[in-house]
Amino acid sequence: MTGHAVGPGTADHVRPESKLRSYARLGKLDVYDYYPSIAIALSAVLLPVSRFEPATAWMLALFLLGEVCVVMAMVALDDVTGFRDGSDAVNYGPDNPLRNKLRKPLVAGTLTPGEALGFAWSAAAVGALLWGAAVAVAPHRPVWTVVLVAVLFVFSLQYSYGLKISYHGFQELFLVALGAALVVAPYGLATGELSGFVLLQGVLFGLGPLMFGVYSNTNDVEGDRRVGRLTVACLVSPKGNAVFIGALSVTEFLLGVAVSVTGVAPWWFAALMLPVTVLRARQYLIGFRQGDIMRARRLGFTVHRVSLLLLIAANLLLGRGAAA
């Protein structure tokens, strides 16, 4: 069925597409930037290969599949809430031609709220089973890691639904914490340990989605304010929001310097991450000097992926040194 259900913010003329395509859009399968968290965890435990256990490979595979399901459930529930409160209708409406309405199947009318909720809860159930299986086959199951996985599952579903964490002033913190937990949890299941350097990598990884999220929030401030979604962009002046995003960009760089100086990371780590700093400065200039917020948001995806590759490289360099 590809009809055009009429609801808040839907249009009478939306190009139809298959249900499968609409469900893929609902689950945001094309926005995969949390999923490579597993690559960071893998790179941190891969070398020396002679010590890499088959059980670790199974655990990482199951954790990744569960992560995909849980994140799909999270973003689908976010769409349900955004449709119900009307914020998506504003942010993807005719006054915002740069946003593709088909990316929001409920606004476009290609899925119904009931279909979206069914998809979300089904994905959550499968994700819970897969994460349970990952814990069961893991080489190590320290209590803190098992608790972290459980907390990660519960709170992921509360992002914009239930407790609505993102609506009550905690969106920015949540995005970083989610990324960090998705790195630390599988690493803990693989090693039974909590590494300061891996925790730092998790935070830097989480800053990636945050740093394209805050540009989205800058663009979506009108719709978010209308429904009481308390992002920083809604709570402060445009100048204050620009200062906040600039401070986040600087903090990302200073974290790398701090861990290099204190010995938590290798001395060369801050230098390795300099390309991210350069790209982050460019992102800020595009957004707040040239005034092209959506172009700056798109660049954020590139910055995040460059950061990911450099974090993996850092782990492999360390692992190679340990194996030598």
Rank of each mutant, 00 (worst) to 15 (best):
M1R: 11
G3F: 03
V6P: 00
G9P: 03
T10G: 12
T10Y: 06
R15P: 02
E17G: 08
S18C: 03
L20P: 00
A24H: 09
V31F: 08
V31H: 13
Y32C: 01
Y32I: 03
Y34L: 09
Y34F: 12
I38D: 01
S50M: 05
F52E: 07
F52D: 04
T56L: 05
A57E: 04
L60C: 07
A61C: 04
L64Q: 00
L65Y: 00
A76E: 02
A76S: 15
L77Y: 09
D78A: 15
D78Q: 12
D79H: 11
G82K: 02
G93W: 06
P94L: 02
N100T: 13
K101F: 08
V107E: 03
L111I: 01
P113S: 02
G114E: 07
W121A: 04
S122Y: 10
A123Y: 05
A123I: 06
A124N: 10
A134I: 03
V135A: 05
A136C: 09
V137P: 09
A138Y: 06
P139F: 09
H140T: 04
V143D: 10
F153W: 08
S156L: 04
Q158V: 00
S160L: 12
Y167K: 02
G169I: 03
G169H: 07
F170A: 13
V176L: 00
L182R: 13
V183L: 06
P186N: 15
P186E: 10
P186L: 14
T191A: 08
T191I: 05
F197D: 10
V198M: 07
L204T: 07
F205H: 11
G206C: 05
L210A: 03
V214F: 12
V214L: 09
S216G: 09
N219D: 12
R225H: 11
V227N: 14
V227S: 11
R229C: 11
R229L: 11
T231Y: 00
C234D: 11
S237Q: 13
S237E: 14
E252H: 15
L254I: 10
L254R: 08
L254G: 07
A258M: 02
S260Y: 08
T262G: 07
V264E: 00
V264Q: 00
A265K: 00
A265W: 00
P266T: 01
A271K: 03
L272D: 06
M273R: 08
L274G: 06
P275M: 11
Q283C: 07
Q283K: 05
F288A: 02
M294H: 15
R295L: 08
R298S: 14
G300S: 05
R305L: 14
V306I: 15
L310M: 11
L310E: 06
L316N: 11
L317F: 12
G321E: 10
A322T: 08
